Simulated assay, not measured.
Amino acid sequence: MIEQRSDYAFSRFLKFWRRVHQLSQEELAGRLESSPRHISRLETGTCRASEAIVLQIGEVLALGKRDLNHLLISAGYAPLVERIDFNSPELRWLRKAMILTLRALDPYPATLVDSDSQILMVNKGFVNLFTQVVPASLLAQITNNYDFVFGRSSTDSMVKDWEDTISAIIMAGQQAALFSNNPEDQAQIDSLVERSGVPPDWAQRAAKMEPRSSFRVQIDLRGEVQNFFNVSTIVGSLGPAAFVSDPRLTINILYPEDDNLDLSFPADADIRHPLLFY
């Protein structure tokens, strides 16, 4: 049984920001062209805030993107997320940080993926491993993580429990698309659902599973099947903003199940890929 809570997160956020700006309920009501009684009801939780007044509060208090999104989420509304170009000049520092992070993960294969499942960067460990599996010319053309991991039929997939795993991934994307209400996000999910091997009951399957940050992958290396754990790490800001900040980045890392599997490569190895930046 789900515990019923009488408190309302928005009420706590509203009180917090009103006190940060040292405003009385009457002063805030005046700025909002509302009544002190309405502000009082919002703060006691006896009245639910409309999205319009949440946005108005954010405007009159000059809240930044992070704090406005927290306020929206606390009131039960979807955050406002602006798409940010990972390759823009102002994110040079982030690109450098991601290069250093991927390099530090060598020799374990790792990729940096955005919220559209586009692969932005890879490390040498990734190229070294998968050139043993995929022709280098083909590997160089792969830019989408869905295409890379789930591009084959379920019977020829690298992923164990393929149908359950892809169902869970589609469900995560579907719920994100419901939040964003962005036609492009929904179109991506619709395209994924139509892929070969996706079970028709993917939604029912996913509903029975809790979210997973990792899954098992099988890779045939030199005629021997090796098991890996695919672990995903979210790159984001602190607090709830990590789930609404953009660019929403994920680092996917493959760790071998066999501790004795040697993934190392010579320091001077000639390893190349269009998305390898060191």
Rank of each mutant, 00 (worst) to 15 (best):
V81F: 00
A62H: 11
K208F: 07
F86N: 08
V193S: 03
S245L: 06
E27I: 04
P266Y: 03
P256Q: 08
S137K: 11
F243M: 10
F126L: 01
E26T: 14
A52D: 11
F150W: 13
A242F: 04
A203E: 12
W17V: 06
Q56S: 07
S34C: 10
I119W: 05
G173Y: 01
Q132K: 10
D67M: 06
G45Q: 01
M171T: 04
N230W: 13
I39P: 02
Q56G: 02
S115N: 10
Q22A: 11
L178G: 03
R18G: 02
L14W: 06
V198M: 09
D190I: 02
G64E: 11
I234Y: 09
P183E: 05
D270Q: 12
F277R: 14
R31W: 03
H70F: 06
D270H: 12
P109E: 05
F86E: 06
A242N: 09
F229I: 15
D164P: 01
S237K: 06
E33W: 00
T111N: 07
A140Q: 07
D258G: 08
K65G: 08
P107N: 04
A29K: 05
H273C: 05
E194W: 01
S6K: 05
A203N: 07
N252R: 09
G76W: 04
F126A: 07
V122P: 00
P135C: 07
H21M: 00
N260T: 15
L275R: 14
E90K: 12
D85M: 01
G239S: 08
L72K: 08
S137P: 00
S115V: 13
S191I: 00
G197F: 05
E184N: 10
V122Y: 04
R83K: 12
I2M: 03
S153E: 09
S153Y: 01
M98W: 00
M158Y: 14
N182Y: 11
L94Q: 14
R222Q: 15
M171C: 06
Y108Q: 10
M1P: 10
R222D: 15
D262V: 11
T111F: 03
F228M: 00
G125E: 10
K96F: 03
T143R: 15
L63W: 09
F13R: 12
A75R: 06
A104S: 14
S40G: 12
A168L: 13
R212W: 03
V54I: 03
W17C: 05
V127M: 02
V133Y: 01
A136S: 11
Q118L: 08
I170W: 01
I73P: 01
A52V: 09
F130V: 02
Q188P: 11
Q4F: 12
S213L: 13
E26A: 13
F130Y: 15
G239V: 06
T44S: 02
N145G: 15
S137L: 09
V60E: 00
V198Y: 11
R248G: 13
H38T: 10
V133H: 04
A52M: 07
P109V: 05
L55R: 13
T111S: 11
G64P: 04
N230S: 15
V113C: 03
